[in-house]
Design a protein around this nucleic acid. Sequence first.
DNA 1: ACTTACCGTAAGTCATAGCTTACGCTTTTG
DNA 2: CAAAAGCGTAAGCTATGACTTACGGTAAGT
Lengths: 111, 111
Amino acid sequence: MAYTHAIDETLIALADPTRRAILQRLRVGAMPVGVLAEGLPVSRPAVSQHLRILSNAGLLIVTPQGNRRLYGLAPTGMNGLRAYLDDLWGDALEAFAQAAHDLLKDDTHDT
Amino acid sequence: MAYTHAIDETLIALADPTRRAILQRLRVGAMPVGVLAEGLPVSRPAVSQHLRILSNAGLLIVTPQGNRRLYGLAPTGMNGLRAYLDDLWGDALEAFAQAAHDLLKDDTHDT
DNA sequence: ACTTACCGTAAGTCATAGCTTACGCTTTTG
DNA sequence: CAAAAGCGTAAGCTATGACTTACGGTAAGT
């Protein structure tokens, strides 16, 4: 397993609007930092910093190509977060169903 | 009734470790603020503030019961975020498959 | 080999998020 | 009715995060 680069980093990475804009922009495919920065309201170094965070979170794949570095979405980057959400909300749904069941207490109960 | 409480709020809500601890603690079921705070390393008012953020993000359901207020996980709270991730990463996977396909069918000769 | 392009990092500034203490309101209890 | 319990909110402090400009290092072009 070890899909997870630590949920913490993934969520922090996704919590920033500029970083989400970067991800949106990468949907069409990988691109170098310069091109990426042109479509964004912040400077190129700022983009570089965001890319570092996104990469550390396992959300991006970096492909050095001579002079440039191509950044693209990592296909498995979201697996850790997904697993986390599924786990957490799985229990939540169970607890909710249980509560609803308790409220309806006119049905038979079991264990 | 949009699921979307704005993914912005959802992600920011999830990005904080204390708030995730709160969610974890609520997995077993709803509970009032006081009980919730006892299991956490921060003060009760701090928990209240976090609960407000989580509620605004649509992640919690509040049930006033006389003197107290019971906080529980909202079953549909994650739907918006899930949809967002599915959409974003759906395209990412397509782009990735496309790129892989391109590489196989027409190898670029460089160097 | 020199110049240009591309990129990451360092240093510094400014805004914001999270915490604590203090306070006021509402509901329960004696 | 008075006292206490349970919460939310305001005010203030501090740490952290996001941005900018400046700089250095490597690859490409002439």
